[in-house]
Amino acid sequence: MAIKLSGEFEINKTPDAVYEFLTDPNKFAPLLPEFQGVTVLDATHFHVKVNVGISHIKGTADVKMELTQADRPTRAQYKGQGSVAGGNVSMIAGFDLSPNGEGTKVNWQGEAQIFGRLASVAGGLLEPLGKKQVQKLIDALQAALT
């Protein structure tokens, strides 16, 4: 089950500052909804734990994240792979940064593939939930950068 989302927002920070924030797991990861913890392995790899669940299907997702594109200060892209509630999730999240006056315009794209019990049982609910969670992340990101 694929969930694809995209959007854009503007921030009153320079692209370099935004890029710095997005590529620092210790700053970026805590903004994830239901964040539980992060373990940074090296400059491009970290593990993040978040709580996920729909109704009675609940669990902790252990997601291995990798910064797969780091083009300062124009683009950052993460790929992630994790397991949760009898299933697996793989995701890609990309941020394209462009100057916008004194600030930055952020175009973001997210895609998640969900496999297993969660997708089977909660299929129809995943997309609206995913949208809600992504919006929370973007809101948190905007707040943190403001």
């Binding site: 089950m1 694929a2 593939q113 496999f115 297993g116 019990r117 997708a119 089977s120 049982v121 299929g123």
Partner: peptide, 14 residues
């Protein structure tokens, strides 16, 4: 099934 092979009718709800 969805396009990646998740069975979407695995309970009596679906």
């Amino acid at each position: 099934y969805d396009e990646v092979g998740n069975m979407l009718t695995s309970t009596f709800s679906d």
